[in-house]
Design a protein around this nucleic acid. Structure first.
Lengths: 132, 132, 132, 132
DNA sequence: GTGGTCTAGACCACA
DNA sequence: GTGGTCTAGACCACC
């Protein structure tokens, strides 16, 4: 499990960590039951405060993607095979997707190219870590 | 031009306004040269401060989507027909799209459904405000 | 005398008009005693309010570059051959030049190139409309 | 880092602050990575509102000269050694330089003196903060 | 009548 | 302790 954060980015560090874990789950690098790095170790690697890592893990826990236990640390509790998302998530996600896709179109990216890029990104997810 | 904002949302109000305008540009409700509501008038409609609207318009100006002049107010200065976006935008957008699509997959939405939802959203953009 | 204004610029129109006249004086297209276009005619040409032209001429008058009379309209009252500027002007101008030159240097333009560009611009002024 | 602002000037305070920072970068008093004063602290020093300082820093951020982060505050992100400016900047800068130089010439400053003053100002920039 | 600038003060987010 | 967001209200600049 290799994660990267850009300390100079405008995106909050805890958000970057959360995003990288979500991507790792999506492309199969992290499967259900897998352990995430220990908070203090990960914080030391990046030279950041371990509270920041804690916050990232807590966000993932609130979103139901990881389980945090005192002894085992953080483990992935859900992945794409667990079942379809609930209606609330789908609604919220669709609203954010609408904005993101609109941003591409409004900036002049042809709708066909937008769709193709989405397809390519999704291929990257389903291809990794799977046999089927 | 009808915009909506959710005062109770965690998303900053100025960001919501910016998002709504981007979507309106993408689906053709706002075309190049169209005027946005006056900052103070829009603020009064929503019961928010005019500085908040100001910031939303300023963000859109920085992103090259609207032009702000003292006399004219804010007008749309760019749309999907202006030409392809530059490399920096495309790179940044793709990174954000990767995270958003990963979030859907990680929460159990099948890749095919994700792609279908993207297609449906894009259809909504290209269909509106066109004669064809 | 041909002036141009960019109605879409962030620079106020009256300021643009003032700048164009100053440049015309510097490069010799306008000499002492020459008439500036009538305010209403110029306003009609550009499709702008004649008060805006008036303001531009008034700024030039305050700066001692033109004289405005009811009958003759606006005429150039001073040019580069009238004598050296006073200390107040020189001090103010130098402060503004410091900022402008610093902006180029801070953005990575080599000092030698900045100086060369200044020389080229000055050549453009002293070459036109002179025999010497 | 010493900055000065003139409350009585017609130039907006945030613009003055931005200009002083640009000059400090140009003459080497501020190097890449250096921190700018905290917005609220600087505001208190000058007896102005912190929003005004905020705006100055935001303008510098938009121009790519400083980076603003929650924890670190504002730091210089670019200086004259970063590489040449892009074409858009050069074009815009040259237009403003034309006006400024024309103003000196139109007010009777000999072109040779204008050039000499530019050279002297540029010397001030390249001399400071260097070991050579 | 439009946006621009500045002030004052509150509460929140990030690290 | 840093900046970010939002509110409220004043006065100014441009057209």
């Amino acid at each position: 499990m290799i994660l990267t954060v850009d300390i100079t980015s405008d995106v909050p560090i805890y958000q970057q960590l959360r995003d990288r874990v979500v991507e790792a789950i999506a492309d199969g690098r992290l499967a259900v039951g897998d352990s995430l790095p220990a908070t203090r170790a990960l914080a030391a690697d990046f030279g950041i405060n371990f509270h920041t890592v804690n916050k990232a893990y807590d966000v993932l826990r609130q979103q139901g993607l990881v389980r945090v236990q005192r002894k085992t640390g953080a483990t992935v509790s859900k992945d794409q095979s667990t079942g379809p998302p609930d209606a609330a998530f789908t609604e919220d996600w669709t609203a954010r997707a609408r904005t993101l896709l609109a941003e591409a179109v409004a900036n002049g990216m042809p709708a066909a190219e937008v769709q193709e890029r989405c397809r390519a990104l999704l291929d990257g997810f389903v291809d990794k870590g799977r046999t089927s």
